[in-house]
């Protein structure tokens, strides 16, 4: 079973629709037992970091997520909450990745919204996707680059488009909204 984390900043419906179109069943859950028992866990997110993190902490879901041993995929805010710290609401993250999450400096339109290509991709998530696939992004804050960076994107500055460490995977873009390319990436994650 695939579990999609249920919390106050979820775009859970879109993720569930994408999984269904790939022929997978999934549950939307905030039950620690169900999350621990799942084969894969997806940690989606559209919302504000401080509010979302407070919600997770109040339910000890931050500790549940940190202790997961199966493959976990953070998406957008989910990725940012897996980092060490976010400038958005001066929020301490779950800290799987030691990257910092910062607000885009002035330069171009913010949020960074629309289709943009990846660079410097490596690892299992990007199998069959080539070196510069386009994905759909919508975000105002970005994760800095670091040892866990497995893809970058350039907008105002180069930032981490994807991270990976041990069983934790994370993407800044929305694979569930990125047409066939996004479905291929989700399938790569589900095949892990």
């Amino acid at each position: 079973m695939i579990a999609i984390l249920k919390y106050n900043a979820g775009n859970t419906r879109s993720v569930l629709n994408a999984l269904n179109s790939l022929g997978y069943e999934a549950c939307i859950s905030d039950d620690p037992v169900q999350l621990q028992a799942a084969d894969k866990v997806i940690f989606p997110g559209v919302g504000e970091a401080g509010t979302a993190m407070a919600y997770l902490k109040a339910r000890q879901l931050d500790q549940v997520i940190r202790a997961l041993k199966q493959p976990v995929l953070g998406i957008c805010l989910g990725m940012q909450l897996l980092c060490a710290h976010s400038e958005e609401g001066d929020t301490a993250g779950i800290g799987i990745f030691d990257n910092q999450v910062k607000r885009f400096p002035p330069g171009l339109l913010v949020p960074h919204m629309g289709w943009n290509n990846l660079e410097n991709t490596s690892g299992a998530l990007f199998k069959d996707l080539g070196q510069s696939a386009d994905f759909y992004f919508v975000h105002t804050y970005y994760a800095t680059q670091g040892v866990a960076t497995v893809a970058t994107t350039d907008y105002i500055l180069p930032f981490s488009a994807a991270l990976q460490k041990d069983n934790f995977y994370a993407v800044q873009f929305h694979p569930e909204k990125s047409a066939q390319t996004g479905l291929t990436l989700l399938e790569n994650f589900l095949d892990l």
Binding site: S14, N17, S21, Y136, K177, A179
Partner: peptide, 8 residues
């Protein structure tokens, strides 16, 4: 529509 497409 949401169930049928996966673009924004």
């Amino acid at each position: 529509v949401a169930a049928a497409i996966n673009i924004p």
